[in-house]
Amino acid sequence: MNSINKQKEIAVATVDEIAVDIPKEVIIEETSIAIFKTKDSTIFALENKCPHKGGPLSQGIVSGEHVFCPLHDWKISLHDGRAQGADEGCTASYGTRVENNTVYLLLK
């Protein structure tokens, strides 16, 4: 998959390797990415960096489709990386795809 027009996909883990609500940290080149698996096995991926002060979101408490940052408890949407409530900020989110139990990350 190295056509320039297509998004780059990369296999990062198997679905079974990621525990529900316990994110997996994956480092691609210099970027750390947190991969989330929710109760219904949906996979999400966010840059592992809280929009507040860079806290590692992979270490947060995951509730439904949100993660609470371990440093100061900001609530971040797994869908788009946006901070919820009164807090403002957004962290990069990545598309994911699952095929044959393998989780692929869509890089932009």
Binding site: A11, V12, I22, E25, V26, E29
Partner: peptide, 9 residues
Amino acid sequence: LFEQRKVEL
């Protein structure tokens, strides 16, 4: 809990 997986592009 502790693994940081490094993936090559």
